[in-house]
Design a binder for these strands. Structure first.
Length: 566
DNA sequence: GCCGTTTTCGGCCCGACTGTTTTCAGTCG
């Protein structure tokens, strides 16, 4: 619920952009609207407060025209330009732009000449030959559009990071085994650890491109081949994800990696800077006139602009380039600096592994500790522990700690924050634990701010778990003012969790950064319910890095002793 | 529509591929 106006305005400007594109307006005008939309949704500050201070024009990407429209909307609740854009175009038509090989020109052509208003109209004119007869169209184009429609109907969802990473790992391993392959690296939003990814991009250096592409397109998990050449192969996996592999020469590997990692906004800004210096950046290198001056590694590309290398997770055009110019980039936390997982479930509640199995797996992962935080008694559907059961678990943890060397099991709980704001266990019990994580699991619309704040006032509560409650694939989350929660966490010195479970990633990148800026510590927990889910720590670290977090901002980098004495 | 140590007007990020063309438009990443 945070910054709602920003989101509304961003959606409106994106819609205007789509409409103008459909109408064939000046492309740069369209870019301007989309840029304004992106800036608004990336902003941590509420647009209303900026508006009240009269500082709209100071936001980069917001000029006279768009500032006026924002003002109009915030004052009257309406925006004429937006109403106009919506009025002229049939509902749902612009969604068809997501069909592969269909862009604004093709769609406008079909709409004007053949009256296409929906997917079924569009399919009909594609199949009966009338679309192919239009000027500039032809049989091959229409064939591609029909293929695109098939894919459009199956799924247009972005892939979750938790599904994409294992898939990419297995492809990377297979490519690495092939003779003639030197480097293999994922690029794109996956490398930036964005919470969902569109298509998966993998870059390869090696000789004999066509052999590499041939091998890739014949992998057993490939369902359909979209394109196949000497430098690029594009496929749809049986599981539905699109994967592109590109083969490059070593002397342009860095430039290509930089280019294909994105984000688009980050790259546009870099190319803008290059232009000012009389340079040109492409996926093949940095050029001064026709002379190539960089391209082997990413560092070279950044160096030509007098910039330090910028970690992929920061490349969103959220101030990282300006900060790099000032030489003030954060020392992002590294996965190797994480000493343990601070939120894991065992068989005692709804997990599938025993405490000992989890401890052994944690040790194998190189951790110093793992915190077992099973559910508390009121959470019946998740096998919440009665007070006696928790005491038994505490005793078992003591026995395991005595037995196992090289790993410490921390006694914890994910104690429920009840409807009335009270905790599900008495303080006398909480005092026996190493770490108390508190969370809301019921009544998402009832007094969530008040309940969380009252939990933070409890001296034993060290962490608030999944503070917004959202599920990426399916749920909005609590009705909550996250800014107030973050502010109160700062005041009470309570840490907020970055829940690393792939469908949560909660807090997200932007809110984690906000928390850090207010001096709040963060705690990464996988919320794993199986021992094979502990790897998702990597996703949590990805979110932390996207949130500009450093080692000192996280509880997971503290020693066991310091954690216990929090 | 935005923006300015070359500009308040005239630019605006770059290249490949494909299919339709006979020199280029549209789409994509």
């Amino acid at each position: 619920m945070d910054n709602m106006r920003n989101k509304e305005l961003a959606d409106m400007f994106n819609a205007i952009g789509d409409a103008l594109e459909f109408k064939g307006e000046n492309p740069f005008k369209i870019i301007a609207y989309r840029k304004a939309a992106r800036v608004l949704s990336d902003m941590t500050e509420d647009i209303e407060s900026i508006h009240q201070r009269g500082k709209l024009r100071e936001i980069p990407g917001i000029g006279e025209g768009i500032a006026k429209k924002i003002d109009e909307y915030l004052r009257t609740g309406k925006m004429k330009k937006y109403e106009e854009a919506k009025r002229d175009i049939p509902e749902g038509l612009l969604e068809l732009l997501s069909i592969q090989s269909v862009g604004p020109k093709t769609l406008a052509l079909a709409h004007k000449n053949l009256g296409v208003k929906s997917l079924s109209d569009f399919k009909k004119v594609a199949s009966d030959g009338s679309l192919a007869k239009l000027p500039g169209m032809g049989n091959k184009k229409v064939e591609n559009i029909l293929k695109g429609m098939e894919r459009f109907e199956v799924s247009k969802e972005r892939i979750s990071l938790g599904d994409a990473i294992p898939l990419v790992q297995s492809i990377v391993e297979k490519l690495n085994r092939l003779k003639g392959v030197k480097d293999v690296s994922p690029a794109g939003s996956l490398r930036r650890f964005k919470e969902t990814v569109g298509d998966i991009d993998i870059l390869v250096t090696g000789t004999e491109g066509s052999k590499i592409i041939d091998y890739f397109t014949k992998l057993p998990e490939v369902g359909q081949i979209l394109a196949k050449g000497e430098t690029k192969g594009s496929v749809v996996m049986r599981t539905g994800q699109q994967v592109d592999v590109r083969v490059l020469s070593e002397d342009s590997y860095g430039a290509a990696l930089q280019y294909f990692t994105g984000s688009k906004a980050h790259n546009i800004k870099l190319r803008h800077m290059a232009r000012e210096r009389g340079l040109k950046i492409s996926e093949y290198g940095v050029f001064k006139g026709s002379k190539k001056i960089a391209g082997r590694i990413e560092e070279e590309v950044y160096r030509t602009l007098n910039l330090p290398w910028i970690p992929a997770e920061l490349r969103e055009d959220r101030g990282e380039i300006e900060t790099a110019i000032d030489g003030k980039l954060p020392q992002l936390v590294k996965y190797e600096e994480i000493k343990g997982d601070l939120h894991v479930h065992s068989k005692y509640s709804d997990g599938s592994a025993t405490v000992e199995e989890l401890a052994i797996e944690a040790k194998r992962l190189g951790y110093e500790y793992i915190a077992i935080c099973d559910h508390s008694k009121s959470v019946k559907y998740a096998g919440g522990l009665s007070e006696d059961r928790l005491l038994e678990e505490i005793e078992e943890i003591d026995r395991i700690n005595a037995k196992l060397k090289g790993i410490t099991v921390l006694k914890g709980t994910e104690v429920d924050i009840l409807q009335n704001g009270k905790l599900d266990y008495p303080n006398s019990l909480l005092s026996k634990l190493d770490i108390v994580v508190a969370a809301i699991h019921t009544s998402f619309k009832k007094d969530c701010n008040k309940r969380m704040m009252s939990a933070m006032e409890n001296p034993y509560v060290k962490v608030i778990a999944h503070p917004t409650g959202r599920l990426i694939s399916s749920r909005e989350g609590y009705v909550i003012d996250i800014n107030e929660v973050i502010g109160y966490a700062a005041k009470t010195n309570t840490a907020l969790e970055i829940n690393a479970y792939y469908d949560r990633l909660d807090l997200n990148d932007v809110n984690s950064r906000k928390a850090k800026d207010l001096g709040v510590k963060l705690s990464i927990g996988t919320d794993a319910h199986h021992k094979h889910q502990l790897w998702m720590m990597k996703l949590g670290v990805g979110v932390a890095r996207r949130g500009w977090l450093e080692k000192k901002d996280l509880l997971n980098t503290l020693s066991v002793t310091k954690l216990r004495n929090l």
